[in-house]
Design a protein around this nucleic acid. Sequence first.
RNA 1: GCCGGGGUAGCUCAGAGGCAGAGCAACUGAUUCGUAAUCAGUAGGUCGCGGGUUCGACUCCCGCCCCCGGCUCCA
Length: 596
Amino acid sequence: MTVSEEDRHLRLTGEFDCDATPLATLRHSTSHVMAQAVKRLFPEVKVAIGPAIEDGFYYDFFKAEPFTPEDLARIEDEMRSIAKADLRFERREMPRAEAIAFFRQRGERFKVEILEGLDAPTVSLYTQGDFIDLCRGPHVGSTGQIRFFKLLSSSGAYWRGDEKNPMLQRIYGTAWLTQEELDRHLWRLEEAKKRDHRKLGRELDLYIFNEVSPGAPIWLPGGWTIVRELERFVREKLDASGYQEISTPILVNKKLWEQSGHWDYYQENMFLVESEEQIFSLKPMNCPESTIVYRHALRSYRDLPLRFSDMGRLHRNERSGTLTGLFRVRQFTQDDAHVYCRLDQIQAEITAMLGLVRDWYKPFGLEPFFKLSTRPPKSLGTDEQWRVAERGLEDALRANGLAFELNPGDGTFYGPKIDVDIQDALARRWQMATIQIDFQQPERFGLEYVDSDGQPKPPVMIHRAIFGSFERIVGILTEHYAGAFPTWLAPVQARVIPISEKFADYARSVHERLRAARVRSELDDRNEKLGYRIREAQLSRVPYMLVCGAREAEAGTVSLRHRSGDDLGAVPVDRVVGDLAREIAARESSLTVGRS
RNA sequence: GCCGGGGUAGCUCAGAGGCAGAGCAACUGAUUCGUAAUCAGUAGGUCGCGGGUUCGACUCCCGCCCCCGGCUCCA
């Protein structure tokens, strides 16, 4: 269903217009009806392209003024009347030269441009009522089948995705086979808005952004607690997987980047700093410095594989318009590592990494999807190296029985890669892990090991990040959990609430016992009504509320409430402390305290 | 970076050439409370930044910064 960028470019050259699935066909037809409505309401507008995409469709129009929300409402009304008229979609073929003349005469310059790029002798046109469009189809039988749709937004988009081309006005819409599916999709859009991590980050006091450093989060105590827990998770896992952690400088002399190739291939994304007539850069990647660690000692074939983890803070000068909360930042920390191994160890190492992906995502209930990206147009290295590296990754995926999507030309300049997307609670996909083979850095930095025959050989370098970046994963998890983090990640794990001042001392003793057991507890003994303080704890998604009154002080219990709203009644303090400690240590995904 | 929309109190937002507003939060006081908002009072502003027009600019004009929706790019 997903239409990759590659497919879209193919479509432009007329290979096909959309998948023949009923849903994609419906969406594609809906985009034609939208174009028809736009042409009726704005006759001067020129049409460009209108494909089906994931969850819907769009159509690009050449129009001086952007569409307003009122325009969208009018267009949607017009679409409904076109649908009601139940016009037939009629296909007809035409010699390409004739089609060029036809569209040129109508002033449809974009259609002419598409046609001129085709080499087919004949092309097909689809007509419904007063609208005719160059299109390979297929389409639904008639506009009457288009019923469950909604226009969502409009924005600028470049013709053929190239910023040197004219800016078009794109209208996005969604279309489904049933009212239920449409409603569910619209609900998901609403829910996604509510879960927006930028909003929740502020409301839950996790992280904020400030114009003094665009694209760099300012971590508040709550959000930083989450980062620390994730780092602890990563370190525990790495310690158990044969990795060694290192740390390398953030500010690095340009000379290193010249040697690594980043100066030629990545400079536009690097922040530069000058000092004493030397040029330095904030590192955009950790890999070149990891080679210095490799070279620090003479390495033997017996030493390999060497696995260096380096959770370095990176800076990449992303274009200002691309920054988005924690999802796209200029400063971030990868859970990065570089593995140096022999050729014969590649597959075992990649396999182990794919194992890490599955193991690490499990506690979060995140489903991984694998993508293999191959050699891009601008790259370093020989054909032979690329062939070996690409096959190494593919073999490991196949050996593990993992399905994957192929992204030709999407690799880095130094090697092919496996990227891993996850699907969150709202079925949205985000990129997380990346595993990249690199023959270039070892060569450029003259890395070698002494093989069993006494000869020096170059090691293979594998870059990999499993969570991707701590920033991005915190953003993803914030939305995935809608702010209700599992207890081990929750900034505040328990809030102790005395019913009134009279029981503040008892509540304090409960709070102190929790703290002694390293539970992140807070005491809310403010002079507010119980209901008010429960409400505040609920709104901050604190997993457990421990209410203390006369009965509890008497019996050595607390009245336990889960943020789910469940009231577990009186539970002995000993048991609450024990259950909480166990739930946290086990990184449980659900609330268990008082239930066992 | 490009197209469009924005930036007013800590937060959410109203206001539009002539005294800067509300709700929530904060603070003070009263209340001492049994599971999602007790009452009363007080305080809070470089209206993003800089320049211009005007008797007078939060409001109009110009430039810049940042944010939002997309394009492009990406961990």
